[in-house]
Design a protein around this nucleic acid. Structure first.
Length: 865
RNA sequence: GCGAGUGUGGCGGAACUGGCAGACGCGCUGGUCUUAGGAACCAGUCCUCCGGGGUGCAGGUUCGAGUCCUGUCACUCGCACCA
């Protein structure tokens, strides 16, 4: 028999053990029922869980348990995003291999997860740093390589000269080394890239099909991809120096000399402003700069200016407060349409990696060019009239006009609308062979090289004879060596002979292994595929299994992954599909981005010292209370303010449920109806479906049953459709309050009471699985509550005999009428009833009724004039 | 600057398609029981001059607006010289 006290510690460990022993959460592909793939973003094994994890995994667990009760075949896996920097830093600090540190962290966090009663299929656990996993990460790399989606290129990395090591962007914040505070330099290294830009268009367009994603995330991805349509225009180059004599146009001349070069290409989205160009700017890094100034009077000053930028990393370069600086380099070029001579400048505000690294300056119609022109006294030439402004205003511009208007000062294009001119001028540029329409993206290729130990080694070799050679598939995995000494400095793989020395698979000669490892985002971009087939030794995943489980039906995680992780995963899925390994083109059908967990108004962070430890909460109140609070305190997408009193409130509520069950069961066992009925089989009042069952009851009993079914309906909708767990829980709280009141009524039937308790437990089960399971068993059921179907409400039970109709006069609530449902449902009957009310005559006060608005079953509004 | 989002009691938040604002919980106040309680239970808890007024502010649409529209302010997040 159930005990009087709610002993959560005993109950929770008991059920966790039983679920584990019975394999309650194991799934297979061949089971009956539609599949449902519920996924939380897997954690980095930092050492212990924080509240953000608890929130994330509680949300997914509720969804998984709910769907399971609804009869779905639910895949609910967990794993570890286990490569990465902290393990390596810890290794240096404690002289312990990263593998050990990671393994211990995982062990501890695994037990914490188990302690929360999360219904994972532990048989599918995946760890990205295990050779069984990263073997396939390497295989995917090779697949992409085969498909031409991998290339090598020189690129800058953050380099700390004092630590002699490469830093990630996050470690180089503010241009300063995180560890030693030395100024970070840029170093150019040969590195590996994935051609994600091949998929720019698809990644952008397919966002429209992701109807289950928050608009916010899609917008962020759209901005990140940054598509813009424009024209790439060539400004032919003049040879003139700064002595002012007229130059000669030299474009299209064969055999160019050092003074006769082809044009300079710029990309513009505003080709309509071409006649407004008063200068042209190159990025300081532009390859032409050195050539253009070579041997001129400008060489020295320009070189000095350029050098200033080389040491600067991108962050310092693009900081908000960075002032625009630039200089004239003594050269001119020709405007392809107007034929005008245009001075060439270099300036810090032009980015080398976007477009062509060169920009046409149109001060009148671009705010950046405007401020630059004002600073350096450059021509501001208006070519588009702002509607409603007089032409003479153009000279007195206080800021750039970036809108549309009528063209002026633009040769034969004058008089057109700017929209028309855009097309006409683009056509003209193309006709002249001076450029063409072009689409540009902000998205850059994905640099996956990390000069680090703790990551999946890039499976490539350099053979002096055969060049770059992929490691053959049957030689995977390329294992990380463990004979490594960890100290600050270079990638330890570089100094490991056992790792570096290899044999070329093509010629059999000596070769050198690539020592770069892969960005951990690479490992986390396909883990959800591995969950579908986690133990395969012959493939990354079986196509049939991914066909069964993919895509993920519900993905849940923090918004901080809205761009990188989600974009990379989408890219990889598309690439693998194109390699013939997948049927789907998008990994995640529905996405829920949960809010942060805050304390005192700020995100819980070790750094801020505003941390509440999940372990403490579980120890003091139990996992069920922790889960309940975190789901009750706010809807999942919103930030959640932690509140200790609120936790106690949830604990109180569970105690209240416990006592209710205890009292109900005590009464049932003493009741002639209940005594013999407890057991695994259905008791009569458990299946009083249909109108007949309902009509057996009346008065308080009938009202109580109605409440039960109304609550089932609400909770089903709130959990299954809206993911508003907070309102679902509050609905159950209301039901419990009602049951307490009902219990004291003289007419209260024990069967109805039991029916109410049964509903409470079923509805609470996804939230507080241990308590629900314990009380379910106490009710006499032998099977797990999770094998019980999700409760169904009966329409007939929802029908009200009396309903409340609101009476308004001129929109103000004047009365609430209790009416038979039949009367309330009919326009005419309601009108008639209301018209006869003395209250109405009183409020009319001699005035006449202008109109009567009737909403059947709800409201009557009498408009009085 | 661009983009997205959010503004409701002392607090977290309800109000789903325009129809009873403040559900549920916290906190607070008073009470019952108790040796005691930070336990449990009961009652109360937006303001009010008792007419009414209240959902950041100002307008608008409507019989009716927290909800829709326009403008505005504040805060949060993302991107940020992307030509």
């Amino acid at each position: 028999m159930i005990k009087e006290r709610y002993d959560f510690a005993r109950i929770e460990s008991k059920w966790q053990e039983r679920w584990r022993e019975s394999g309650a959460n194991r799934v297979r592909e061949d089971e009956a029922g539609e599949k449902f793939y519920a996924l939380a973003m897997f954690p980095y094994p930092s050492g212990r869980l924080h509240m953000g994890h608890v929130r994330n995994y509680s949300i997914v667990d509720v969804i998984a348990r709910f769907k399971r009760m609804q009869g779905y075949n639910v895949l609910h896996p967990i794993g570890w995003d286990a490569f990465g920097l902290p393990a390596e830093n810890a290794a240096i600090k404690n002289q312990r291999p990263p593998a050990e540190w990671t393994r211990d962290n995982i062990a501890h966090m695994r037990s914490q997860l188990a302690g929360l009663g999360l219904s994972y299929d532990w048989g599918r656990e995946v760890t990205t740093c295990s050779p069984e996993y990263y073997r396939w990460t390497q295989w995917i790399f090779l697949e992409l390589y085969k498909r031409g989606l991998v290339y090598r290129k020189e690129a800058n990395v953050n380099w700390c000269p004092s630590c002699a090591t490469v830093l990630a962007n996050e470690q180089a914040e503010g241009g300063v080394c995180e560890r030693c505070a030395a100024a970070v330099e840029l170093r150019s290294l040969e590195q590996w890239f994935l051609k994600i830009t091949n998929y720019s268009e698809q990644l952008l367009n397919d966002l429209d099909g992701l109807t289950g994603w928050p608009e916010k995330v899609k917008t962020m991805q759209r901005n990140w991809i940054g598509r813009s349509e424009g024209v790439q225009v060539e400004f032919s180059q003049w040879t003139i120096g700064d002595n002012g004599d007229n130059g000669v146009r030299t474009a299209n001349i064969e055999e160019p000399t050092s003074n006769q070069r082809a044009g300079i290409a710029v990309f513009t989205t505003r080709v309509d402003t071409l006649f407004g160009v008063s200068y042209l700017v190159l990025a300081p890094e532009h390859p032409l700069v050195a050539e253009l100034v070579e041997g001129t009077a400008y060489q020295e000053s320009v070189t000095a200016f350029v050098r200033e930028f080389n040491g600067l990393n991108e962050e310092a370069r693009t900081a908000d407060d960075a002032e625009k600086v630039g200089m004239f380099i003594g050269r001119y070029c020709l405007n392809p349409l107007s034929g005008e001579r245009v001075p060439i400048w270099i300036a810090n505000y032009v980015l080398p990696q976007y477009g062509t690294g060169a920009v046409m300056g149109v001060p009148a119609h671009d705010s950046r060019d405007f401020s630059f022109a004002v600073k350096y006294g450059l021509d501001i030439r208006c070519v588009i009239l702002e509607p409603g402004k007089a032409p003479e205003d153009a000279d007195l511009m206080g800021e750039a006009y970036t809108g549309e208007g009528v063209m002026i000062n633009s040769g034969r294009f004058s008089g057109m609308s700017s929209g028309e001119a855009w097309g006409a001028m683009a056509d003209e540029v193309e006709r002249l062979g001076m450029g063409s329409r072009k689409v540009n993206y902000r998205l850059r290729d994905w640099l996956i090289s990390r000069q680090r130990y703790w990551g999946a080694p890039i499976p490539m070799l350099m053979c002096p004879k055969c060049g770059l050679t992929p490691v053959p598939e049957d030689q995977l995995p390329v294992l990380l060596p463990d004979d490594i000494v960890f100290e600050a400095g270079e990638n330890p793989l570089r100094s490991s002979p056992s790792f570096r020395e290899a044999v070329c698979p093509l010629c059999g000669g000596a070769a050198v292994r690539e020592t770069d490892t892969m960005d951990t985002f690479m490992c986390s971009s396909w883990y959800f595929l591995r969950y579908c087939d986690p133990c395969s030794e012959t493939a990354a995943f079986d196509r049939e299994k991914t066909d069964y489980w993919m895509g993920v039906d519900q993905y849940v995680g923090g918004v901080e992954h809205a761009i990188l992780h989600l974009l990379y995963a989408r890219f990889l899925v598309k690439a693998l599909r194109d390699c013939g390994h997948l049927s789907v083109g998008e990994p995640f059908e529905n996405l829920l981005t949960q809010g942060m967990v805050c304390l005192n108004g700020a995100k819980m962070q070790k750094r801020l010292g505003n941390i509440v430890s999940p372990e403490d909460i579980v120890e003091r109140f139990g996992a069920d209370t922790a889960r309940l609070f975190i789901l009750f305190a706010a809807p999942p997408e919103r930030d959640l303010e932690w509140n200790d009193h609120g936790v106690e409130g949830c604990y109180r509520f569970l105690n209240r449920v416990w006592r209710l069950a205890w009292q109900v069961l005590k009464r049932v066992s003493g009741d002639e109806l209940g005594g013999g009925a407890i057991g695994g089989t259905a008791v009569p009042w458990d299946d009083c479906a249909g109108r007949d069952g309902f009509d057996r009851w009346n008065g308080d009993n009938k009202d109580m049953l109605r409440r039960v079914h109304v609550t089932i309906k609400r909770v089903t909708h709130d959990v299954g459709v809206r993911f508003n767990f907070n309102t679902a829980i509050s609905a159950v709280m209301e039901l419990v309050n009602e049951l307490y009141l009902f219990k004291e009524k003289p007419e209260a039937d024990t069967g109805v009471l039991r029916q109410g308790l049964r509903a409470v437990l079923l509805l609470l089960a996804p939230f507080v699985p241990h308590l629900a399971e314990e009380l379910w068993q106490a009710m006499g059921y032998e099977d797990s509550i999770f094998l019980q179907g999700w409760p169904q409400y009966q329409e007939a039970f929802l029908e009200m005999e009396m309903v409340t109709v609101v009476l308004q006069i001129n929109g103000k609530v004047r009365d609430r009428l209790q009416l038979p449902a039949e009367t309330a449902a009919s326009q005419e009957a309601l009108k008639e009833y209301v018209a006869g009310l003395p209250k109405v005559t009183q409020y009319l006060d001699g005035k006449s009724v202008v109109k009567m608005v009737v909403v059947p079953g709800k409201l009557v509004n009498i408009v009085v004039g």
